[in-house]
Nucleic acid binder design. Structure first.
Length: 484
DNA sequence: ATGTTC
């Protein structure tokens, strides 16, 4: 079959099919471990062949353990593919890479139960869409009502969502449903530049732009009733999903440390297959400073989603004329580097696991999960593209790709190509005709985010399940979308 | 992703 010229296309001849949903990039050249891509044949065909190249490049980095992995939604990123997972062993010269985390540090998804039923929602849908759009700043450079002093900034960078709650944005019980209990340990605000702090000063509680959004969604289908019960979701439930990250602060940290790692790599004798893979040995002062700054950015993202949660609760309570609690289902990040214990060839190891556009997906009984979720596994929140479905999955275990799963639909077309092909206003009107209300300050941004510019999220989560990365629990369909 | 180009 001939493909249209705008579509990505992967050359499959370089891959060995290990299983129906598992493709190996065999070791060659400077690769220290193989590459593994989890995908269906259709998904892998539609992948940019840069994914193969980048997954192989990551496999050349010092101290990498087991394999360089790519998730079913992988696409071309800066250095590492987006949808990439790679773990490094400090004792084997392992590295930390700013490009392995990405610019939007700790970008993630948080899902809230609303307790509102569909009939009630439909009656207030327009008012709710307008209220959320007014209440939650969205778009490039968006600022909110909160302005942090330098001291407050430091407290936020070490306190995360726990800081936000102490400031009155939310409730203490929210913390148990956030990765790291809402507060990432090991943050070092001194490793965050004055410039990064300045950029963030007025950006708390804002969505940002690109693929970030706040959506009101309906649970349209349950695939695993037992796990859905543990997650307390049922068909017909209305939920809210918030997708955003660490805004200007994370971006600035990423920019500065990428530059510094690139400059120092040569001096440290690390040969890079691609200068975008700039990294530093885990034991080096530079890597430790980056980790301190990156963990501060994780706290920033957790605090940001916490403030947005508070604003969302205010809008819902106002619109529906009663106090609505909107408790958390879960909050999970998909751009991080975390030190985690993993079993490798029967040996327990502490590894620096980079997940870039990949979600943590810890399985049953993992000690980091709250007690009430241990029987189900960690909720894995998969954001779809604008106007399409999202999914709730559950982690299945730690064995495959270090307990990771996909994070979203993944682009199938560049932003540039999407802008040429679609008009934002027309998309908004078409979606409104289907009962999906879009609110956005940027029609250009809406065109870039056209549903047709993304892979089919259903086939992505299907591949994730078939590959054993996670289990599909529920499908969510959008009703309102505030888009950056 | 991003005060969308240091």
């Amino acid at each position: 079959m001939l493909s249209a010229s705008w579509m990505y296309e992967m050359d499959l001849s370089q891959l060995i099919r290990r299983d129906v949903y598992e493709w190996e990039i065999p070791m060659r050249g400077a690769m220290r471990v193989p590459g593994i891509i989890y995908a269906s044949q259709d998904l892998i065909r539609a992948m940019d062949d840069k994914v193969l190249e980048q997954t192989a490049n990551v496999a050349m980095l010092p101290g990498i353990v087991s394999a360089s992995y790519a998730m079913p939604d992988a696409h071309w990123g800066y250095g590492f593919p987006i949808g990439g997972v790679a773990a490094f062993d400090a004792e084997e010269g392992g590295v930390v890479s700013a490009g392995g985390v990405g610019f939007d540090i700790s970008c993630g998804v948080r899902c809230l139960h609303t307790g509102v039923d569909l009939d009630e929602l439909k009656q207030k849908q327009v008012v709710l869409a307008d209220g959320l759009y007014r209440g939650i700043p969205a778009g490039v450079g968006s600022t909110g009502k909160i302005s942090l002093s330098d001291r407050e900034m430091t407290e936020m960078l070490t306190g995360g969502a726990a800081w936000a709650i102490a400031q009155g944005y939310g409730r203490a019980e929210d913390l148990a449903r956030i990765e790291e209990n809402g507060r990432m340990q090991g943050a070092d605000p001194k490793a965050v530049s004055a410039h990064a702090r300045r950029r963030q000063r007025d950006e708390m509680g804002t969505l940002g732009s690109g693929n970030h959004y706040l959506e009101v969604q309906i649970v349209s289908e349950i695939f695993d009733k037992k796990i859905a019960n543990v997650f307390a979701i049922a068909e017909g439930d209305v939920v809210v999903s918030i997708h955003c990250g660490s805004r200007g602060l994370g971006h600035q940290i990423g920019t500065e440390y990428l530059k510094e790692m690139a400059q120092s790599a040569a001096g440290l004798g690390i040969a890079l297959p691609d200068r975008e893979l700039a990294c530093a040995p885990i034991h080096s002062p530079l890597a430790q400073r980056y980790l301190g700054a990156m963990r501060s950015a994780i706290n920033c993202a957790l605090a940001n989603r916490q403030v947005i949660t508070h604003l969302t609760r205010q809008v819902f309570s106002e619109v529906f004329g009663r106090e609505l609690q909107l408790p958390l289902l879960y909050d999970v990040s998909h751009n991080t580097c975390k030190v985690e214990e993993h079993l490798v060839g029967g040996t327990k190891m502490n590894l620096h696991v980079h997940r870039k556009g990949a979600t943590r997906a810890f399985g049953l009984d993992h000690p980091d999960l709250p007690q009430e979720l241990k029987a189900a596994g960690q909720p894995v929140l998969i954001g779809g593209s604008m106007g399409t479905a999202s999914y709730v999955l559950a982690g299945t275990g730690m064995e495959i790709a270090f307990g990771s799963a996909c994070h979203g639909a993944g682009r199938a077309m560049s932003r540039h190509a999407a802008k040429k092909r679609w008009q934002g206003r027309k998309l908004v009107d078409q979606l409104a005709g289907r009962g999906i209300l879009i609110r956005s300050p940027s029609m250009r941004g809406v065109a870039e985010e056209a549903p047709g510019a993304y892979k089919d999220v259903s086939s992505v989560v299907d591949a994730a399940q078939e590959a054993g990365l996670a289990r599909v629990v529920a499908k969510l369909l959008p009703l309102v979308c505030v888009k950056g």
